[in-house]
């Protein structure tokens, strides 16, 4: 056995306060720490207002934390700007919940998917189109449809466009913020499978944020449970699901509706 690797990403004591008035602040996230290794998925679960999306946005540097730090490949990135921020962003991409509102409706799929390349100033002549087509093909879209607009695709296909856009810069970490929540179950299962296949193939790490605990069990190696801005419990997937310690985790798990086990014929064996 060689040494323990430096985590791909480590969040340390992250907090975020928002001003809500002249003298009032609201603490959305408080003292959140976790790490994610290569080819590993951290699931973050919690109910609305628990701070999971704010956490994701701090990791992606879409908003700045009030305090705490984020290390990516051992390097503190919370102060990055300009070229170093751009470098960081080629390593970290996001996929959002609603593909229609997160993809520009006036841009063709080719423009949407190649946008991160343009931002990265990596538009090698002629290379862009072939990269877009390769990314579309990999996520199961017909590359001949690259001149269509997002609205011409179903919800599941549109989410594949969002995944192709994230993949095109070959990120090491993809943050999925409720990325499958809006999809029908059959489509959801396919997109989850695609995400796992991509992880196996490219050693991608995910931070997978979801309110649906059953979905998180399908994809995450480890799970952090958030409530009111704090992580109340985190650990390996099976420990969290099979032997939860915190009262809130227990309550969450007990609330998940399940198909009556006496009847359940659709269970995978």
């Amino acid at each position: 056995m060689s040494d323990i690797a430096t985590p791909l990403l480590a969040a340390k004591d992250l907090s975020k306060e928002f001003r809500t008035g002249r003298r009032e602040t609201f603490t959305a996230v408080e003292g959140v720490s976790f790490d994610v290794h290569r080819r590993q998925t951290l699931g973050i679960v919690g109910e609305s207002g628990s701070g999971k999306s704010t956490t994701a946005r701090m990791i992606a540097r879409l908003i700045d934390p009030t305090s705490g730090s984020v290390e990516f490949q051992g390097e503190e990135i919370t102060q990055h700007s300009g070229a170093s921020l751009r470098d960081f962003r080629s390593g970290v991409q996001m996929v959002f919940q609603d593909p229609y509102s997160s993809l520009n409706p006036r841009h063709t799929v080719e423009e949407v998917v190649s946008a991160p390349l343009r931002y990265q100033k990596r538009t090698a002549a002629g290379g862009c189109r072939s990269m877009v087509k390769a990314a579309m093909e990999r996520v199961g879209l017909n590359p001949d449809h690259s001149t269509r607009y997002p609205r011409q695709f179903s919800g599941g296909q549109a989410q594949r466009i969002g995944i192709a856009r994230a993949l095109i810069v070959e990120p090491k970490l993809v943050i999925c913020d409720e990325a499958v929540s809006a999809l029908d179950v059959s489509v959801q299962a396919q997109v989850l499978e695609l995400l796992v296949d991509l992880q196996r193939e490219r050693d991608i790490s995910y931070i997978f944020i979801a309110h649906d605990l059953a979905v998180v069990r399908q994809i995450a190696h480890k799970v952090a449970v958030m409530q009111k801005g704090r992580i109340v419990e985190q650990g390996p997937r099976d420990e969290i699901f099979d032997d939860p310690q915190h009262e809130y985790t227990k309550a969450l798990l007990a609330s998940v509706p399940s198909i009556d086990p006496r009847w359940d014929a659709g269970r995978r064996s």
Binding site: Q188, A189, L192, D212, A214, V215, R217, F241, L253, G266
Partner: peptide, 10 residues
């Protein structure tokens, strides 16, 4: 549909 429904103990 049943097979695609994620289960907590899967």
């Amino acid at each position: 549909l049943l097979a695609a429904t994620p289960r907590l103990d899967d």
